[in-house]
Structure formats: C-alpha cells, structure tokens
Design a protein around this nucleic acid. Sequence first.
DNA 1: TTGTATGCGTTATCAT
DNA 2: ATGATAACGCATACAA
Lengths: 347, 347
Amino acid sequence: MGRRTPGSAPTLSDVAQHAGVSLATASRAINGSQTRVVGEELRERVLASARALGYAPDANAQAMARGTTRAVGVIVHDLTDPYFAAVADAMSRAATERDLFLTLATTGNHVEHLAEVVAQLDTLRVRAIVLVGGRWKANQPTADLLSAVDRYVSRGGRVVTIGMEVPGVDSVNVDSEDGARQLARHLHRLGYRSPLILSGPELHSTAVTRSAAFVRALADEGIAVHPDHLISSDFTRTGGAIAMRMALEAGVDVDVAIAMNDVMALGAMAEARANGVAVPQELAFTGFGDIPSLQDVIPSLTTVHIPSSSLATLALNLALDGPGDGTGDVTVPVMLVARDSTPERAG
Amino acid sequence: MGRRTPGSAPTLSDVAQHAGVSLATASRAINGSQTRVVGEELRERVLASARALGYAPDANAQAMARGTTRAVGVIVHDLTDPYFAAVADAMSRAATERDLFLTLATTGNHVEHLAEVVAQLDTLRVRAIVLVGGRWKANQPTADLLSAVDRYVSRGGRVVTIGMEVPGVDSVNVDSEDGARQLARHLHRLGYRSPLILSGPELHSTAVTRSAAFVRALADEGIAVHPDHLISSDFTRTGGAIAMRMALEAGVDVDVAIAMNDVMALGAMAEARANGVAVPQELAFTGFGDIPSLQDVIPSLTTVHIPSSSLATLALNLALDGPGDGTGDVTVPVMLVARDSTPERAG
DNA sequence: TTGTATGCGTTATCAT
DNA sequence: ATGATAACGCATACAA
C-alpha cells in the first residue's frame, strides 16, 4: 500500500512535486486563497495528488504562516461536576459550529494553577480563552492570574469568563438576582417562612453575590433570614452535606434549605435524610442550576434552570467577536423549575 | 506599561537581542537543550529579558521545529453523559501529569463525523488519539474511519480506543464478562430468577458483547433468559425508558431489570415507577458503570463499578508507550457495587 | 560555552 | 493564472 515510513508525513511540497506544479499553486488549490484562483485543470490534478499521497496539512505550520490558530481554550474546574460538563459540552458544539477546536484544561482542586494554565494556552496561541468559574474555593483573581491574562491579552488574545469577575475581562453571567427572586416568590407562595441558606465559600464572589441576592429577595417577600441560618461551605456535594450537618447539629428550626447550587442541595438532602429528617415534608430543598441528573433524584429537586448551552455560545461569541475590553458583559436569564422537593406547605 | 501593540508578540529573537546574546543561546537558556548547557550568567540575563518582555514561546513554532507536539486528542460522544465526563476528566488529569494538553472533540449524535474528527486531529499532529466509544448507535468502524486512522497511524500517530474495537488499534476494555458474572451471582444469591435484559443497540459491539456475557453468566447460575426478555434500545436514558415501556406493554413477568449501563437503568427505573411499578419491591434494577450521580437516586442503584480513572490513565499510557500495532489490549477489572435497588427477594 | 546557519511546512508577496 | 521566494518562530547541527 501507499503507506510511507512511519514518522514521515507527505508535505505540500510532495504534493506539488507529484502534481508537477509549484508549491504556491498546490497551496492555493488545496487551501484556497481569497485573492488567487487556480485553473480548473491544475486544481484537479493537485487534489488528486493530495488524495493519492494521503496528504493532510500541518496545522502547526499553517498557524505559523497565517499567524493565527483555530484553537480556543476552555478552562473548567472539574468535568465530573455536571455543570462544567454541560458547559464544556455546549462549548464543544459551539466551537465545531464555528470550525474551531477545543483545547480543554481542568484545574482540579488547584486554583493556584490557573495562571499556569492560562500561560500554557497562551503558548499555544489559542484564539480565545473561556474561563469557567464557579467551584473554586475562592474566585478572586490572584495577581498571578491577572498578569497571565494581561500578557495573553497584550498579544491580541481574547478572554471571557463565565460566572467569574476578572477586571478588564468580558464576562457572561447568570442572572442570580432574578433567579433568587423567582425562587423566593415561589417559596413564599407555597407557605415557607424560615429558610436556611446553604451558601458557598466566603471568598467566592458568586456564592456571596447569590446568597445576598437570596437574602434580599426573601426580604422582599417579608421573610427575614436569621444570621445563624446562613451557612458557608464548599460549592460541592460534600460541602452541602457538611453545611447541612452543621445546621442539624445547631438544631436550627427551618422549613426549607436553599442551596446555592444543585450539587450542594443534593449533598444536603442526603445528609438530612441520613439523619432522619423527612424530606420534603419536614424540610424542603432547592438548588440552583438544573443539572441533568436531577431528573433521577427523589424527590425531584426544585431549582433554577441555567441555560448552559447559551452560556457557552454567548461566551464563545463574546470571546471571538466582542469588544474584548471588559465592557461586553452579558447576563443570561434563568427560569424557576418547580418540582417535588418543595411541596405546598400547610400554614 | 510594557504592553506591546496588540497582535504582536515578543519572539525569541527579541529576547536574544534584549539580552545581547544569540538566538541559539536564548533558546537553550529558556527551553534547555539536552546536549548543551548555558553559562550561569548568560542564562540569568536571558531569563530576565524574557520576563521583562513578557515572552512566551510559540508552541506552534516549537512543534514545527521539534517535529512533535505536546497535544493528545480525545474523542467522546457527549460530555453530558457522566461516563464520558468521568473519562475525559481523568484523561485531563493524566495528560497534565505527563505534561501534555488535551484537544477535546465531541461527536454529538453524529458517528458519521468520527472520521472527520480524526482527520482534524491528524492535521493538528497530536501525539496520540484516544477514542472513547460507548454510546453511538453503532460502533462498527466505518471505512471512512478506518482510512482516517490508517493515514494518521502511517504518519507515526498513535491511536487507542476505549470500549471499542478497531482493527489494528490497541484498546482498553472493561471486563464486562467478569462484571456480568459478579452481578449474576449476586442476583441469584438474592433470589432473583427471571431477569429482563435491557440491551443497547443491536449494532453496538459493547452492547452485544455485554448482554451476551449476561446471558451466559445467568445461565451459569441456572437462570435462563427468555428471548422476549432481552430488549434492544439506545444506550441512553431515553433508550432505557423506551425499552422499559415496551417490556411493560408486553406484560413481561420479571423480577429484575438488568440494564447495560447506568443511564439506561435510571431511565427504565423512572419509566417503571411512572407506570405504577413498585421499585424495587416489585421490580429490581441494576446498572453498569457506577456513575457519580447514582449516589443521589433512590433507591440507590446496584451496579458494576468501572474505574474510569484507570481506564483513562491506561489508555493514555498505552497510546504513548504501547506497541501501537493493536496487540497491546488491556482489560480493566470491575467490581460489583451492591445497593438498594436489588433487595433480598423472598423466594 | 557561544554563535551561525539551516530547516521545519505553510502562506503570502512579489514577479512573470 | 502560475511560479519563485521570503517570511513565520524556533531548535539544532555545525563551526568557532
């Protein structure tokens, strides 16, 4: 067969030679120039040669010659978290749509590696970086991160964050404010009066913002949140469980636990149940995000739907076409999803 | 500030010039050659210049000069599926471990794009491609895919699949055989005697292999599977639900539904319950895979744990260090996880 | 140890 | 319309 020796790859020159044309013509015939056109006959011949040799262009060489790549970088905390998985998946689709490909990086539990990851992507000369925030203990950008972003941007790189504020960087955010309002109104109407708020890490801006939004929204409904009824913990399932345990041990008297995201709610719910609390009769639960696996938990969890797909699409569009100066912030609407974890409460 | 005009990036030449050394010295000082060493003083000066200019190497140029990249390609069906998410996450960690980065591609529902995706990754000259099979309707490699893989391999590329057979390609597989055996034994001991097998697509080799393994394993326990009690459907949650509905409408008399993966089991379980079946008393359920979200479903699902992390690590190692000729197949052990969806059955 | 020069595969700018 | 040829940014064989 036409298999060449391993390690070698047919180059454009090989193709040109095989077709008996110049390198330039081969290039134009295969990857098409915007200015030049190749004659019908030659084009056919070149294409045939390319096929015959099994030619595949070298994207790295193209990147260098063109001065730009077709890669976009995506940074998430942990793909195991359904929220990130959903966003990453949508991002992948959106990228394919625009004929780009994804370089995906996860930071695991190490926020401190964030700057390093950005530098890596910088090295790859990705066209844009989408930084998906949301589960790190703290999401205040460190000096390291800021300078890495700054270097990248100074090279013409584009950055946009999702659910995370970085000075001078465009961002796409969830309308936590409105979500809290919808949920608070719903709970009030159902008869809930003493909420327990399961907040995220105290250093996490989304956690702080969102819980503040809940406190306000509840106040608007005439429901005051007792200071002891706001517990901070990790933005994870375990975090939710721990917060719930703390609440139970403190013997708080509440009728609904409002978690700042779904996984926390699930963790808290499991913990409550494990401690003999009747869910949802004795204690109701709400989440935030509407991750897919929610459809299989019992009772199904009342939550606020975050359209992760538009989140991703908007972020990518913003990254590629936006101003790129931090003035292009976008907020995506959310929607209450009432389910079984918050039954109507008898007075 | 030292911000350069957007679009431009300081190059190694700039650094060399700034430090007053040659290009070669700058290169060696920054990325360290294995043969050459740079004097202490000069190295410092170069590094300082690099820092001062905000220099970041161009990975594309390096790739070209070195003739090799640090990228590995990963192809999954859908990140929204917890199984793929888990594998991809583990892959990301494994890649970081080896100082590589991930180029992630999802095929969505379009198996037919698989060849195209491989060609793309080929273009990028990724060091290796890990193809994670498992949810496509059919996973028989098409001629398109085969030739794309062949071209890539002939260039020195490495391919390994997970849970999918492609001729001449190394693969990492789950020990379905043993998983079926463990589960069958468990079910038999608990008193189950008439199983319903929820299989995957008829064209899907994993589905076929695994259900055959179950039929055998059950037979070994003296349990025969009635032909009508093996239903094929999609490898998805919806597929599971549909299969369950068909079984219910057919009025099958069974005591346990054995799904070929977790999401099918969850879909089937929900469907059964929606149709008034008491779960698990009236009908028990088992899955395969042990995806994380299982901990929040009630009753918790008995399943077979697939160590997705070692799956990913092994695949990557095999891809990078293996023979690369299809003789390096690896099988990873699985483990029964008995939970509440299969209670002991009163004779 | 340091510097010079060449090549990696492609695009783009010139001529022709 | 086609063909030379110069970049692109870096690593390395060779020379000093």
